[in-house]
Design a protein around this nucleic acid. Sequence first.
RNA 1: GGGGGCAUAGCCCAGUCGGUUAGAGCGCUUGCUUCACACGCAAGAGGCCACUGGUUCGAGUCCAGUUGUCCCCACCA
Length: 795
Amino acid sequence: MEEFEKRYGGVAVEREIQKYWEDQGIYEYRADRSRPLFSIDTPPPTVSGSLHIGHIFSYTQAEMIARFRRMQGYSVYYPFGFDDNGLPSERLVEKETGIRANETSRSAFCDRCIETVRKYEAEFVALWKSMGFSCDWKLQYSTVSRSAQRLSQRSFIELAAAGHAYIKESPVLWCTECRTSIAQAELDARSVDAFFHHVAFSVDGEVLEIATTRPELLYGVVCVLVNPDDPRYSGLIGRKAKVPLYDFEVPLLADDKVAADKGTGAVMCATFGDTTDVEWVSQYGLPYRKALLPDGSMAPEVPFVAGLGVKAAREEIVRLLKGRGLLVRSERITHAVSVHERCGAEVEIVPSRQWYIDVLGKKGELLEAGDRVRWYPAHMKSRYVNWVENLKWDWCISRQRYFGVPIPVWYCAKCARPAFADLSSLPVNPLETAYSGVCECGCTEFVPDSAVLDTWATSSISPMINLDKASEYGMGDGFMPMSMRTQAHEIIRTWAFYTIVKSLYHTGDIPWKDAMICGFVLAKPGEKISKSKGNADLTPQALIDSCSADAIRYWVAGARLGTDTFFDQGEMTELSGRFMTKLWNSSKFVCSHLGDFDPLREPAETKPIDRWIVERTNETIAQAAAFLGEYEAGLARKAIDELFWKDLCDNYIEIVKERLYQPDIYGAEARLSAQRSIYYCLLNVLKMYAVYVPHLTECIYRKGFDRLVGIDSIHLTQWERPAPADAELLAFGEELKAVVSEMRKHKSENGLSMRAEVPSVTIRGSARHEGWFRETEADLAACSHARELVYDLGS
RNA sequence: GGGGGCAUAGCCCAGUCGGUUAGAGCGCUUGCUUCACACGCAAGAGGCCACUGGUUCGAGUCCAGUUGUCCCCACCA
């Protein structure tokens, strides 16, 4: 038995233990068909900056599940990945280096990107390791790696061959800042102050007042609409409206989507002001009038404002309208606009040729797939359902960016028909490799596609990336669907949604059986932790250094699954610190009484109180396992805390202490009976806490338990699977605690020490437990220092 | 505007199938220390379980509505 230091060593010990785990390969994934598989689809963090406490929070909740399943006998497939291509990483590099992607050569920029993401990834890995994460780093993947690119390109080609991915020229959501198409999922809403300009159109010489926030798009107006039931305008439908400043005429149409009570009840439809404009243009077969270029400037053919940016053009048009008496009034309003989530710029809609994946046509199947996934907590499913039901755009997967998975396509120089790369040639970059085939039209000249795939198009095949890796171990069969996906609730509409889309198309099945949805750590109500808010000063590494990984982990486990929590360092330090000290000290006590303990020797008789604490422990093991099986690590921890602190330490150990100390008085067999209980109970308490505080429990285990158990690491042991606890013994325990409690209350109220002698203690309880109480008399007398025990038993 | 979560002690939160007197922890008050732990032990004070109705022998728990709060989605004419 190793000596217990007076105090637990904290972070320094954690580092030693981490090294031990790594040297011993404790968490190594092994090809093993003898145990059931539990595979975890864990989120590859976007490499877009450093991690903060929020990441630690959600990743740790999932990590505890991995540990639990491992100790339940599962072969746990727990990889780690990085999502390290695409716009987020590009923006990080632009910010760090000051180099804009479009101001340097593409290959030079991509080299800088690789360099930067590798640097951050090394930092991430170091952080995860210092948190004691039990993933197998050999299973690590990166979405920019050759193998992930190969799988991603293959996915694209297969979906295109099956008709699920297609290319079309049409209006698309466009970020003029990032100069790329984006998808609906990348939109954020932002409330902005604006003017609702009431502009004078005219119909046969009469003024028709129309309110718009986008007068700069007047040149792009293709029709005017009113509600068919609006009596004010019933006479106008079917006539022509003249656009102010430009004086061309457009048709006047009626449509139900026009709200009579909004603005003036008459709407101008421009190409393209918003999503409704796109719908109307397609619904009524209206032409496209180009007003805006992809770089955010007005088209050269637009009179008055050619070449100006949107905002400048808007001011100029308003000035002109005002000057010509065509501006009736300007109303100040606050409204929501769509902005690009990555850069915050207002999103435009411009026509261009892009690749899409069909999702609008598959809403039914997607909703049905959502039903088959078990969501934890269950109500998180509504976010998925809500998103699918409100989809307005197919998933645009092409991005006019640089650092990403190239779209493996060339286009015939003559007929523009796409030619796909051969699957055996993947990954391929069409900009570097020429297409060697012949087009159906006979042409042999091809133009490479220069776009890259949406980052989500690759991260959404994480189950397939994992499958690919598992296959290297010969464990590919039966790998899909994976056991569970873990992620935060903010990316249900992206990562969870896209993964389900891809899985349905590729396998016809859901990607995973369970979805474990974690909450956030907020600085305070409604405020996310972020660098821009200046509330992310405390880095995770600094936090680990100051209060240890286990302290953070224990605090994380206090939160309910899916629920946001507020960061409170005081709570973390105090609560966790107290707990860890308590576990350390009680283990020190227990181990000091196990020096001569032989787990194989049975005592002549086992005291009822010793059997009770074993039953209580077994009861807790079952409760904790049930909660963890539902991903509720917090509720499980609460049940374990209750057993450990209250029943085991404050009651059981206090009551049997004298029997452990004084075998001369109470007998060696009686001592052995207690030894068996403290050994069994603390060992199993440690195993349960191993999920939460893996370093501390490992440290304690290796001081006093490894030689008795015969297994080197606590993390290689298994949780007990006890028979249902004996209800009668549990009831006896409650009565016993009540007797002790009453004795303590008497001493407390009379200002007596707990060691003070009292003339008598009354045993109140059920008559049917009298035998057990009689067998417990020595313990009761010893812990209460009573000269006499009197019985007052009810029925 | 649509959807969802939450509302229980001063604070952060549990409360299972509807069932005795509503539960921890922090904080507060009081008492207790050689023999694992004062980062401890024991005791105590502290509740219109948001509000209004309903179902029921019985509601913190189930149903309907109201209010407050947070989140998701939409709103861009």
